[in-house]
Amino acid sequence: MFGKSVKVAVAAVAAAGALAGCGGTPKAGTAALVGDDRITVTELSQDVRDWREQFRADPVANEMRANPGNPAQQLGADSESDVRGALTLLINFRVAREVAEAAGVEITGGRVDRAVESLNRQGGAESITLASGLPRDRARELARLVATQSAVMERFGADFTDRMNPATQRAGQQWNELFRRTADGMEIEVNPRYGTYDPGKFEIDPAEQRLSRPDSGI
């Protein structure tokens, strides 16, 4: 259902990151606010530390994450990028729950189980989670995100047996639009030390060179 390659699965997750940020500076110790839900700097830092340790020991995750043009990719070469990627996914998990509600779909435990099974067939749910930038214990949350995207796109008319079907492509566009609108309504605020959202590129842009200033929120 989710495609025949790990690259497709990871790309689908990345496409879910169409977030629109709001202004404001979260209070000290906060990495991001997603509505009333707070992601702390401690939580984010722990996830990144756990991810680095686990990623080093997982050759499958390394192979998935490696740039084909540079097989000798070095872990931690861009630690700020690692943190931004992890924070983006932590936000996505929260937004996706609201997206499912807005689309009127229920993401049952059975749906998540099937998403885990699909990811396992594509290289392993835990390895894919590591390749995506989070530790293994976030694998089920990642699977829930994948399951949510699948369910919502199906509601919009997607046919996953034919990804080139115009209806499937339209459903993907509708998913991105709904994700963006939902994120807008949730008043997402990111600590400026981590950067800002660029919904056009589906990623967190790096922070400006202001990290040493006292208005970083930390």
Rank of each mutant, 00 (worst) to 15 (best):
R163Y: 12
V116S: 02
D36S: 12
L142H: 02
N165S: 09
N62H: 14
L87I: 03
A115R: 08
R38Y: 06
D78G: 08
T30M: 06
D47Y: 07
A167I: 14
F160G: 07
I107R: 07
T161K: 13
R114M: 13
K27F: 07
A151Q: 11
A131I: 02
E141L: 15
D37S: 13
R38M: 03
R38V: 10
I128C: 00
E43Y: 03
P135T: 07
A66T: 10
A167D: 15
R56V: 02
D36I: 07
N67C: 03
Q149D: 09
G76H: 05
L90K: 13
P135N: 06
A131W: 00
P68E: 11
R155F: 01
A158T: 11
G104N: 09
Q74E: 09
E106Q: 14
R111E: 08
R97P: 05
I128Y: 00
S127T: 02
A102D: 14
S45H: 11
I107A: 14
A100K: 06
A86Q: 06
T168P: 09
A28Q: 11
G69E: 15
E80P: 11
R140M: 12
L75F: 06
R65I: 00
I39G: 05
I107F: 04
S81E: 11
A96F: 06
L33S: 15
A96K: 09
R121M: 08
L145T: 15
L75D: 10
Q73R: 15
E43M: 06
P59M: 03
R144L: 12
P71S: 01
E126F: 00
T40G: 05
A102H: 13
S79D: 14
L87W: 03
A115G: 10
T25L: 11
R49T: 13
R97F: 02
D159F: 01
F156G: 05
A125M: 05
R94Y: 01
R136W: 01
D36L: 09
Q169L: 06
A125F: 03
L87H: 03
G124H: 03
F160H: 10
S132M: 14
A151N: 10
A167Y: 15
E43W: 04
E43T: 11
N62C: 12
N70L: 08
A151M: 05
R170L: 10
Q149W: 02
P26C: 04
D162P: 09
